[in-house]
Amino acid sequence: MKVPVTGFYTKELRSGNSRTGFDVFSLNNNKHAPLARILPDQNYSHNQFIHKVGNYVVDLPSFENIALPSLSIQDNKSVMIIDEIGRMELFSKKFESRVKDVFKNQDVIILATIPNKGKPITLVETLKKLPTAVLIEVDFQNRDILLDKISTSIKNTYDKINKNL
Score class of each variant (00 low, 15 high):
Gly54Ala: 02
Gly54Cys: 01
Gly54Tyr: 00
Asn55Trp: 06
Asp59Tyr: 15
Pro61Gly: 00
Phe63Ser: 01
Phe63Tyr: 07
Glu64Trp: 03
Glu64Arg: 00
Glu64Lys: 00
Ile66Phe: 09
Ala67Ile: 00
Pro69Met: 01
Ser70Trp: 02
Ser70Gly: 12
Leu71Val: 00
Leu71Glu: 05
Leu71Tyr: 05
Ser72Tyr: 15
Gln74Ser: 11
Asp75Arg: 12
Asp75Asn: 15
Asn76Ala: 13
Asn76Cys: 10
Asn76Tyr: 10
Lys77Met: 06
Lys77Arg: 15
Lys77Pro: 02
Ser78Met: 05
Val79Gln: 01
Val79Ala: 06
Met80Thr: 04
Asp83Leu: 02
Glu84Ile: 01
Gly86Gln: 01
Arg87Leu: 02
Met88Tyr: 04
Met88Val: 03
Met88Ala: 06
Glu89Gln: 05
Leu90Phe: 03
Phe91Val: 02
Phe91Thr: 00
Ser92Tyr: 01
Arg98Pro: 08
Asp101His: 08
Val102His: 04
Phe103Met: 09
Phe103Ser: 07
Lys104Asp: 14
Gln106Ile: 10
Gln106Lys: 14
Asp107Lys: 09
Ile109Gln: 10
Ile110Val: 15
Leu111Arg: 06
Leu111Ser: 12
Ala112Trp: 01
Ile114Phe: 13
Pro115Gly: 02
Asn116Arg: 11
Asn116Thr: 09
Lys117Leu: 13
Lys117Ser: 13
Gly118Arg: 03
Gly118Tyr: 08
Lys119Thr: 15
Pro120Ala: 05
Ile121Met: 03
Thr122Phe: 15
Leu123Gly: 07
Thr126Phe: 10
Thr126Arg: 11
Lys129His: 08
Lys129Val: 03
Thr132Asp: 10
Val134Met: 14
Leu135Asn: 10
Ile136Ala: 13
Glu137Asn: 13
Asp139Ile: 00
Phe140Tyr: 13
Gln141Ser: 12
Asn142Gln: 08
Asn142Pro: 07
Arg143Asn: 14
Asp144Thr: 11
Asp148Leu: 05
Ile150Leu: 09
Ile150Phe: 07
Thr152Asn: 14
Ile154Val: 15
Lys155Ala: 11
Asn156Pro: 04
Asn156Glu: 13
Thr157Val: 05
Tyr158Cys: 04
Lys160Thr: 06
Ile161Tyr: 14
Leu165His: 14
